[in-house]
Design a protein around this nucleic acid. Structure first.
Length: 363
DNA sequence: CACGCGTGGAC
DNA sequence: TGTCCAAGCGT
């Protein structure tokens, strides 16, 4: 080994000590999170799985209270596997992406029924379960079972594309990113390596104004050396959705509210809602009442002033709210039911419906 | 591969 | 106010 090689800074393609630097940083600076095992302790696959599902496209802050509620009510996977889907959906209400809750329940049922209550300990075995895709399978395999694999999430994509100044845009760059990310694994502690990169992505290598001075990988980060680290990862621009409009009906019968369940598939699948029209682009609200014929004779409608607005990932929504109060023995139309206003908090309402009800009830 | 799928926070 | 983003998955 020559002197110059030992003293010169290594070129970025050749930094074999990066895995070790990463783990050394993790041992000093790792975040304390409710689902994360303490240093040296074995991770609980159930908690790792539950947290990974909740954290898909969702912030650590939002997940915290939901994670605590779930593990308090269902301390292990077999208890969750015996719970009803309705209970799971109610507990999930407000967290978003509700197909995750259905798949979570289906996965718990599968682990309980087909695997004796024990999670598969390989990436392939995990990948076969509902709601577990390539990222989550790798994450659980690495974190809970110490398999040598590198999960690649949004954080790691950002860190790695900056570290190597990868010019290829997402999602085409995914295979390359996976390959480069894998070089950051050492001979052991794959889960800690992955969590180190996620912590760095979340706290240092942030989308805007990264704190490069604090990064354990800063001295040979190609993006930082070029000075354009914030421009990574490259991605193609996306198109915005078109405004949709509709009407919602807040019908009360004394202290009760008229509700129904949405179809199991599709937008807000299986969640509870108040009756309403379709949501369409180019719809004028004057046409909305005509689309709810089963409610026409219900009573005296009052159109609430203003509108309820909500923005989904792929379209903005504007709802006109009509309210009516009906006689005490009025029957609910087919497919609908009355629920007491006092128990609305326990219903599986998505946030847009909570806005509608608050608007219609003058809360 | 592109799209559908929630919500809340930051700037 | 609009835009982007946050530990992706299923189809």
């Amino acid at each position: 080994m020559s002197q110059s090689r030992a003293t010169k800074r290594r070129p970025q393609q050749d930094a074999p000590d990066r895995p070790a630097r990463l783990l050394a940083w993790y041992d000093r600076h790792r975040r304390t999170l409710p689902w994360r095992a303490k240093a040296g302790e074995r991770a609980d696959p159930y908690r790792v799985w539950l947290s990974e599902i909740m954290l898909q496209q969702t912030t650590v802050r939002a997940v915290g209270p939901y994670f605590e509620k779930f593990v308090a009510r269902w301390p292990d996977v077999t208890l969750l596997g015996r719970a009803s889907l309705d209970d799971v959906l109610r507990m999930w209400a407000g967290l978003g992406y509700y197909s995750r809750a259905r798949n979570l329940h289906a996965c718990a049922v599968a682990v309980t029924g087909d695997h004796g209550g024990v999670f598969p300990d390989t990436e392939e075995g995990l990948r076969a379960l509902p709601g577990i895709g390539p990222y989550t399978a790798a994450a659980i395999a690495a974190i809970a079972f110490d398999r040598r694999t590198m999960p690649v999430d949004g954080n790691i994509e950002r860190v790695v594309t900056r570290l190597y100044a990868i010019e290829e845009a997402l999602p085409q760059a995914k295979p390359l990113i996976k390959e480069m990310a894998t070089t950051l694994l050492g001979p052991a502690r794959a889960g800690d390596s992955a969590q180190a990169l996620m912590d760095i992505g979340a706290t240092i290598c942030t989308p805007k104004k990264p704190a490069c001075a604090l990064c354990p990988l800063n001295d040979d980060c190609a993006g930082r050396i070029r000075g354009d680290q914030e421009t990574f990862p490259r991605k193609a621009p996306k198109k915005s959705g078109v405004l949709r409009r509709g009407a919602a009906f807040v019908v009360t019968r004394g202290g009760e509210l008229l509700v129904r369940s949405r179809p199991e598939k599709g937008l807000l699948g299986g969640m509870t809602e108040v009756p309403g029209s379709q949501w369409q682009a180019g719809l004028e609200d004057a046409a909305a009442l005509a689309q709810a014929p089963e409610l026409k004779g219900v009573g005296r409608w009052h159109r609430k002033a203003g509108v309820v607005t909500h923005v989904f990932t792929h379209f903005p929504l504007e709802l006109v709210v009509y309210s009516a109060s009906v006689a005490s023995r009025t029957r609910a139309p087919d497919g609908m039911r009355w629920v007491p206003v006092e128990t609305l908090d326990g219903e599986a309402f998505p946030n847009v419906m909570r806005k509608v009800i608050a608007h219609g009830l003058d809360l």
